[in-house]
Computed example of a mutant assay.
Amino acid sequence: MPIEEVGESSLPEVRRMRRPERSTIRSSPNLLPVATMLGIAAVDAATGSMYVLLPVYAAGPAIASARGTVRSVTLMGAAAAVLCLLSAWKTGRYDDLRLPVALTAIAYVTLASAYAARSRRKIEQRLVDVREVACTLEDVLFTPVPPTIGPVRIGASYVSANHATRIGGDLYDVEPFPGGLRLVIADVQGKGLGTVRCASVALAAFRESAPSAHALTDVGLRIEQALERRTDGERFVTGILAQIGTDGSLLVFNHGHPPPLLLPRAGRPMPVESDEPVPPFGLAVLTGTTDLRDSVTRLTLNPGDRLFFYTDGLSEARNSTGHFYPVHERVPRLLKSGTPEEALDLLRADVATFTSGPPDDDSALLLLEFQSPS
Results as ranks from 00 to 15, higher is better:
residue 188 V to S: 04
residue 50 M to C: 01
residue 318 R to C: 03
residue 28 S to A: 09
residue 353 T to R: 12
residue 55 P to L: 05
residue 67 R to G: 09
residue 10 S to R: 14
residue 152 V to E: 03
residue 89 W to T: 13
residue 339 T to W: 07
residue 142 F to N: 05
residue 349 A to Q: 04
residue 121 R to E: 15
residue 168 G to L: 07
residue 268 R to C: 00
residue 358 P to C: 10
residue 99 L to N: 01
residue 213 A to E: 02
residue 280 P to R: 02
residue 41 A to D: 07
residue 76 M to Q: 12
residue 194 G to M: 01
residue 340 P to I: 09
residue 47 T to S: 13
residue 180 G to A: 01
residue 182 R to H: 00
residue 321 T to N: 12
residue 82 V to R: 09
residue 185 I to N: 08
residue 310 Y to V: 07
residue 125 Q to K: 10
residue 222 R to Q: 15
residue 171 L to P: 10
residue 374 S to I: 04
residue 179 G to M: 10
residue 362 D to F: 09
residue 349 A to D: 02
residue 73 V to E: 04
residue 49 S to D: 14
residue 223 I to R: 07
residue 293 R to N: 14
residue 289 T to H: 13
residue 105 A to C: 12
residue 329 E to G: 05
residue 344 L to D: 08
residue 10 S to N: 12
residue 185 I to V: 11
residue 98 R to I: 13
residue 252 V to R: 06
residue 201 V to I: 14
residue 264 P to V: 10
residue 177 F to N: 11
residue 159 V to T: 08
residue 192 G to A: 05
residue 84 C to E: 07
residue 354 F to S: 05
residue 336 K to E: 15
residue 254 N to Q: 06
residue 147 P to T: 11
residue 91 T to I: 08
residue 195 T to K: 03
residue 315 S to H: 04
residue 115 Y to K: 00
residue 189 Q to T: 14
residue 156 A to N: 07
residue 128 V to C: 07
residue 139 D to Y: 08
residue 327 V to N: 00
residue 335 L to I: 06
residue 179 G to C: 08
residue 367 L to P: 08
residue 299 L to A: 10
residue 299 L to C: 09
residue 223 I to D: 11
residue 296 V to Y: 02
residue 80 A to L: 03
residue 295 S to C: 07
residue 202 A to T: 15
residue 359 P to S: 09
residue 152 V to W: 10
residue 121 R to N: 14
residue 199 A to R: 06
residue 277 P to A: 15
residue 310 Y to H: 15
residue 172 Y to V: 00
residue 66 A to W: 01
residue 67 R to K: 02
residue 216 L to Y: 08
residue 275 D to Q: 13
residue 23 S to C: 06
residue 176 P to K: 09
residue 234 E to R: 15
residue 300 T to M: 12
residue 301 L to T: 08
residue 232 D to F: 03
residue 238 T to K: 04
residue 186 A to N: 02
